[in-house]
């Protein structure tokens, strides 16, 4: 049983240093590393990277998080188990993990098709199917599904969720 959780925000520059220090203090159990798209952190497009490290007997654990744009130092030499997680995080959130052992064949996309260049879990990535498929929710009693207005429709046609207003039209 984990008795306590400590959340700690660290600067990207201290990422490796802090994790190395925790490892030396006995936090040797690497649970997971993942990304969270925070979209807007103090006006900047930022992604959060979270790592969970615990003591081997799970008596104490630390969640470390940092805000990065798209680059962070790899921790695979400190925590070899992080390689799979960094690889997934790179694929899904478009974060490059600099250094470490995840290179060459081991950085190949796991799930994503090679031709898709945008990381699917970033909120700025629009799913094309949601733009190309006519959204049935666009209709109203006074507005038909194809956008035709009947009578004196005063309201604007609504947009489907997840599609920016002028996507690909600028």
């Amino acid at each position: 049983m984990t008795k306590s959780f400590t959340w700690l925000q660290v600067d990207p520059a201290d990422w490796r240093g802090k994790i190395g220090q925790l490892r030396n203090d006995g936090f040797t159990f690497f649970d997971f590393l993942t990304g969270v798209d925070r979209e807007n952190v103090e006006g900047k497009q930022m992604c959060e990277v979270v790592v969970h490290l615990a003591k081997e007997d799970l008596s104490d654990s630390h969640f470390l998080y940092t805000h990065v744009h798209n680059e962070l130092a790899s921790i695979t030499d400190l925590m070899p188990a992080a390689q799979w997680h960094e690889r997934e995080c790179a694929e899904m959130f478009g974060i490059q993990f600099i250094g470490g052992s995840a290179s060459g064949e081991s950085t190949k996309s796991l799930l994503r098709h090679e031709s898709l260049s945008l990381p699917p879990l970033r909120k700025t990535t629009v799913l094309a199917a949601r733009v190309l498929t006519p959204w049935p929710g666009g209709a109203e009693p006074q507005i038909k599904e194809d956008g035709r207005k009947v009578g004196n429709a005063s309201r604007r046609r609504q947009l489907p969720p997840g599609v920016p207003e002028n996507w690909l039209k600028q």
Binding site: W135, P136, G137, A139, P141, Q142, K144, G151, Q158
Partner: peptide, 21 residues
Amino acid sequence: TSCMLCVRECPAWCISLDSHT
């Protein structure tokens, strides 16, 4: 009442509704 709420909330976009006033 043709309020369209179900159509707009459906995550699979599988409902369609036509109505007039």
